[in-house]
Amino acid sequence: MSFLEIFFIGIGLSMDAFAVSICKGLSTRKLQLKHALICGGYFGFFQGFMPLIGYLLGVQLKSKIESIDHWIAFILLALIGINMIKESFEDEESCHTEFSPKVMIPLAIATSIDALAVGVTFAFLDVHIVSAICIIAITTFIISMIGVKIGHVFGTKYKSKAELAGGIILICMGIKILVEHLHIFG
């Protein structure tokens, strides 16, 4: 996969963290740089760490399911994308005003579960995992910091749109992987 493809996957994966960051910014009365750094740090770390775990699991399974790996990648990305699109139409959840590890770690884990599944697909696609997790982590870090600021300034106006966009990006990447492996257009 190219840098650009991994970057787009990183953007898609970061949309859940972006949505939660908007919520965190909305709940903050006096926004400080540390709030954005905390969100960016937690979400960026877990979005980078979870694909590594998924990749290590995928490497263990690769030889057993190599003939259908493109279907697995497509199905996982499509399911994650569909779930994100579905969540974009659901009611807004309440925002926690705390930035403590007790609050941030569960949020970071919850928003990065999708990245675990993407990590599995990376093993099937022979992605250079160190580059991929760095791109995803940095992308999520920056997008989460921006989300805190947007949430503080604009509120939840963009939260559902971010989840919708992220879902569409992941579905498109899944379709691209499937089309390339099935040699449909080339």
Rank of each mutant, 00 (worst) to 15 (best):
A162G: 14
I113Q: 08
E163W: 02
A108T: 03
M104E: 00
G81R: 13
D69F: 13
N83T: 12
A123Q: 11
G119L: 06
S160Y: 06
A110V: 09
A162T: 04
S94I: 04
S100Q: 01
I171V: 15
K159R: 11
F74I: 09
D91Q: 15
G147F: 06
I150N: 05
K86W: 12
I169C: 07
S94C: 08
H152T: 00
I142Q: 03
G166R: 12
V130C: 01
F141K: 11
S144I: 08
T111M: 12
D91A: 15
M84D: 03
T139R: 12
F154N: 07
H70D: 04
F141G: 05
T111H: 14
I75W: 07
V103D: 01
M84V: 10
S100T: 12
P101V: 01
G166K: 13
I142M: 11
I72P: 00
I133N: 02
S94V: 09
F89D: 07
S88K: 15
K102N: 00
E90P: 09
H128D: 01
E87S: 14
I168R: 12
V118I: 15
D69H: 14
G155D: 03
S88D: 13
T139C: 06
I80E: 02
K159Q: 08
K149C: 02
F89T: 10
L125V: 07
T156F: 05
I143G: 04
W71E: 02
A117I: 04
F74M: 10
I82K: 03
I150E: 01
I136R: 13
V118R: 12
L170D: 05
G119A: 09
V153D: 01
H70R: 06
A115C: 09
E93H: 13
S144W: 09
M104W: 04
I129P: 00
L77E: 05
S100D: 03
P106F: 08
F99K: 13
E90F: 08
A73Y: 06
E163K: 15
L170T: 09
D114A: 14
H70I: 06
T156G: 07
I129F: 09
A137Q: 07
V120A: 14
I171W: 11
D91E: 15
I150M: 06
V127G: 07
L107H: 03
A132N: 07
T139I: 07
I109V: 11
I72E: 03
L107C: 03
D114M: 12
P101M: 03
G147E: 04
I80N: 04
S144V: 08
H128P: 00
I150T: 12
G155C: 05
C95Y: 11
E93N: 15
A110C: 10
A117D: 05
I150R: 11
I129G: 04
S67A: 10
P101Y: 01
F141T: 08
F74K: 14
I80T: 04
D91H: 15
A165R: 07
L79T: 10
L116W: 03
S88V: 04
H96N: 06
C95R: 14
